[in-house]
Each structure stands twice: as C-alpha cells, then as structure tokens.
Amino acid sequence: MPDAIVLAAARFGFLILLWVFVFAVVGVMRRDIFGARQSSLVAVPRGVKFPSSGKPAKAKRGKTPSQLVIVEGALAGTRIPLKENVITFGRAEDSTVVLSDDYASTRHAQLAPRAGQWLLEDLGSTNGTYLDGAKVTEPACVSIGAPIRIGRTVFELRS
C-alpha cells in the first residue's frame, strides 16, 4: 500500500532529518573547538629524527599547547596562536610580543618549538625570565599552565 510507505517515509524522514541537523551542528561546534589545534601542529625540523615520530614526547596528557595567553600585565587576556614560528619577547619593535615594561630588555626572551615542545630561552636580559618561579638560565621546556614571568607580564601556554 503506497500510502503507508509515504506515511512512514514522512514520519521517519522528519526524525532522521532532525537528528542529522543536530549532528551537523555538533560537527560545526567540534570543528570550531579543534580547528585551531589542528593548524598549530608543530612541524618537525627536516633531517632530525625523533623516536616518537613527531608526537610530543612529554606533552601533558597528550595535549599540545595551541596558544600563548597573557594572564597578567598590561596585555592581560591577549591570546597568541602558536604556529611554527619562534615567538620573541622584548621592547624591540620587531618582537612578536612588544613589552613596553621598564623591567623588560630590548631582546628579552624567546619561545621556540622543538619536537612538539616549546623551549623558553632567556636572551641575556637584565632582569631575567622566570618559569614556574625559577630563573631561566638555560633553554627550558614549558609545560601547559606553567607561568612564564617577564617583568610585570605573566604568560601561560594553553592547549
């Protein structure tokens, strides 16, 4: 009986379309959340071999930091997406993050990606760079959530 088929098609067609819509929306939300993370996958330098084939070795619970957030200071709230580029801090105009802070040096510090980790290096600043409260004397791995302090500004890596 064709009527019954049409009826059933109409009846379940709506339910199916409703849920297809719900999943489409969830898909959009998912891309919205994870889109940034996918674009910030850190490139491994050519010719260098790493045991875990590009996956971050010690990254916290498998999370890769995707942004640098300024948590304290004049620029608090600013987020900088982490790409493959080195991020430099200082009073110099060409720094990634220009700090016009009396306690910051012209070329103060830099944050560079190495094998899925971000290394913080002090560039010979006058007042020093602090990671987790300790002065940075040699390049140090920055884990997610550890505060980096330069003068009055505090940064954090977030996933």
Binding site: G73, A74, L75, T78, I80, P81, K83, N85, I87, E93, D94, S95, T96, V97, V98, L99, S100, D101, R152
Partner: peptide
C-alpha cells in the same frame, strides 16, 4: 599608564 603595543606575528591570521 603603561602603554604596551602588541605586534602579533600572526596578526593576519587573527584578523
């Protein structure tokens, strides 16, 4: 006020 300018390298991307 401490005027701090921010030159984000990936500003184009942010825009």
């Amino acid at each position: 006020m401490s005027t701090a300018a921010l030159a984000v390298a990936s500003q184009g991307a942010a825009r």
